[in-house]
């Protein structure tokens, strides 16, 4: 049973409609002022991923999916961790409201037919499903609605998830997407961290969560 003090943040990413950054360092910027949906495709294309399902996702899932990719793609531990030893814990404030509106538009003119593919994305935890499918994550996965980023709430949930599931790694953070703006901050939390990596990692605690969320590492 790991204690909170034994958990580390080994990586973190930020994504919004302006840039994608890794550990606070921008790796892709929206230099042409593209709309969010186009910028997401730009970032996807530059990522080297080949996953056509990406195009089918809504902006919320795309933002989470691409952030999760950058969060984990260089982690050796991530590649070898057991499927049930990995989990996903996501918070946001508006659920899937943007897609809710888009789905509503497909059936609001009388006699029009509601879109099945949009309806699927009217559940916020679908983004977790997308991440779990790609990364083969079979452990605990939870989606919470919260008015704003709350480090205490995240810590309390992380503690439980690690303690009651014996997880090795957790993708955890905040992903909102609404009115063509996204705000994603994901943390890779780990129980086992190699000593030689310790310079680049942070302890999991309230102040680190808050500082990293604000990109002030």
């Amino acid at each position: 049973m790991p204690k909170l003090s034994e958990i580390y943040i080994s990586n973190w990413v930020h994504f919004n409609e302006k840039e994608m950054s890794l550990k606070g360092v921008p790796i892709h910027q929206n230099q042409t002022d593209s709309e969010l949906k186009d910028f997401l495709v730009e970032v996807y294309k530059s990522s080297g991923l080949s996953y056509p399902k990406f195009y089918k996702m809504d902006n919320l899932s795309k933002s989470a999916f691409i952030s999760a990719h950058y969060l984990t793609h260089e982690s050796e531990v991530w590649k070898v961790s057991g499927e049930s030893k990995k989990g996903v814990l996501i918070f946001n404030s508006v659920s899937s409201l943007e897609t809710d509106y888009n789905f509503h538009k497909t059936y609001s003119p009388k006699d029009s037919i509601p879109s099945p593919s949009l309806f699927v994305y009217t559940l916020p935890n679908i983004l977790i499903g997308e991440i779990c499918i790609y990364h083969k994550i079979k452990g605990e996965n939870l989606f919470f609605i919260s008015e704003s980023f709350d480090a205490d709430e995240i810590l309390a949930q992380c503690e439980q998830i690690f303690e009651f599931n014996a997880l090795d790694q957790l993708i955890c953070g905040w992903v909102d997407s609404f009115e063509s703006k996204s705000n994603a901050t994901l943390f890779l939390m780990e129980r086992k961290v190699k000593q030689n990596e310790s310079a680049a990692i942070k302890k999991l605690n309230k102040s680190n969560l808050e500082l990293l969320y604000l990109n002030k590492n």
Partner: peptide, 27 residues
């Protein structure tokens, strides 16, 4: 009111408390 978090606010207003109310949305 369309926001899922509105449910938590309704409970806060009704009970007169400020404590945050987590809402789980896992299908």
């Amino acid at each position: 009111r369309l926001k899922l978090s509105a449910l938590g606010k309704a409970v806060q207003i009704f009970t007169g408390q400020s404590k945050k109310i987590p809402i789980l949305s896992n299908a």
